Simulated scan of single mutants.
Amino acid sequence: MASAEVIPDTMRAVQVRVPGGPEALELVELPVPACGPGQVLVRAGAIGAGGPDVLIRKGIYKWMPPLPAIPGNEMAGTIAAVGDGVDPARIGQRVLVSSRELPERGGCYAQYIVVDADAPFALPDGISDTEAVSLGNVQLAQAMLLGTNGGLPVRSILVPGAAGGVATALVQLAAHHGMTVIGTASTPAKRAHALAHGVTTLVDGDPAGLPQRVLEATNGRGVDLAFDHVGGMHMKCSMPVRRSASWC
């Protein structure tokens, strides 16, 4: 393993041994993982926190890593060391690690992480570590917004739960492209957040009457695209309000 700095023997990490509430998160001291051939060691500069981390802590994440598990799906930082077969010039490179590119989800609530050399994304100087750990949501939202309508123009979109992280990114992008955004939000604070970030019209999010409320808000036209990250009845009740077959 090649490095340009002194790598400590141990690191701090947050670990879940028994799923549960916030008390299930334990601050532990673990050995710093060593680079194998074709791998890099990334030292954390910023770590993302989001809904999937809560699901890992509860033990119900769809892509649950084996226990004991380290939550965290995004880390931005610096390559501190490289394994055999990796260009030593990469030491010191700023990168973003997304566990969606790794064999297992999680692993980023730690001071260091080892990943395959082709897994991290290089970061430009103009993006800070803190900004970088939110990029995954923006990229996902952009792909959903621009690539899921079969080439047809998207002039309006339905976004239930419009104050969430991914949903906010999608709302901002939709507003930037001049789209009409119909949204739902469950509390006054969330409704204010949604309106401030680009939602055009808020409707009651109760699934039972959602189709009728969206049709009323669009003068009977419905929307071109419906985005669902809630599932269940929201998905079923959003389907009738689409003017095309597009769904994301």
Rank of each mutant, 00 (worst) to 15 (best):
A174D: 01
Q139E: 07
L146I: 05
A162N: 09
L140G: 13
L140N: 11
P153F: 04
A174M: 03
T168F: 03
M179S: 03
T187L: 13
L195R: 10
A162S: 14
N137C: 09
T201M: 10
D129H: 10
D125V: 05
A143S: 09
Q139C: 09
R213A: 13
A208D: 13
D125G: 13
L210F: 14
V154C: 15
T168G: 05
A169S: 15
H197N: 15
R191H: 03
H193C: 09
M144Y: 10
T180N: 05
S134W: 06
V203N: 05
A132L: 06
I157D: 00
S128M: 06
V171I: 09
G161V: 11
G164I: 03
G161I: 11
T180Q: 14
G198M: 07
A192P: 10
A169D: 12
N149F: 02
N137M: 11
A141R: 01
S186W: 07
T148N: 14
R155H: 14
G178R: 07
A122H: 09
G147N: 07
K190H: 13
I182T: 05
L195Q: 08
P207Y: 04
A185R: 03
I182Y: 02
H193V: 08
D206A: 11
S128Y: 04
H197K: 11
M144N: 10
T168Y: 00
H176E: 08
A196R: 12
T200M: 04
M179G: 01
A196G: 13
A174H: 01
T130G: 07
M179E: 03
S134V: 15
A169M: 14
Q139I: 15
A162H: 05
G183M: 14
A143K: 11
P153D: 02
T187W: 11
L152E: 12
T130W: 04
G164Q: 00
V166F: 15
D125N: 07
D129E: 10
A196T: 09
L202C: 07
S186C: 10
L140C: 13
Q212N: 10
A189Q: 14
L145K: 03
N149W: 00
N137A: 14
D206C: 06
V181P: 02
M179Q: 12
S186P: 12
A162Y: 05
S186F: 14
E131P: 06
H177P: 02
I157T: 10
P211D: 01
V199G: 01
A163Q: 00
A167W: 03
D129P: 03
K190W: 07
P188I: 04
S128H: 05
V166T: 14
V133N: 00
A174E: 01
T201I: 15
L135S: 08
T201N: 06
G165Q: 13
L140R: 10
A185H: 08
G178I: 07
G136R: 14
G147Q: 08
G164W: 00
P160C: 00
Q212W: 09
V138C: 08
A122N: 11
T168I: 15
D129W: 05
D206K: 08
R213V: 08
I127D: 09
L173G: 06
G183Q: 02
T200C: 04
L152P: 03
A169I: 01
L173K: 03
G209F: 04
T187I: 11
I127Y: 06
E131L: 07
P124D: 06
G164V: 03
P124Y: 01
Q212A: 15
G164E: 00
L145M: 13
G178H: 07
N137W: 07
S186V: 10
M179A: 04
P211Q: 02
V203I: 13
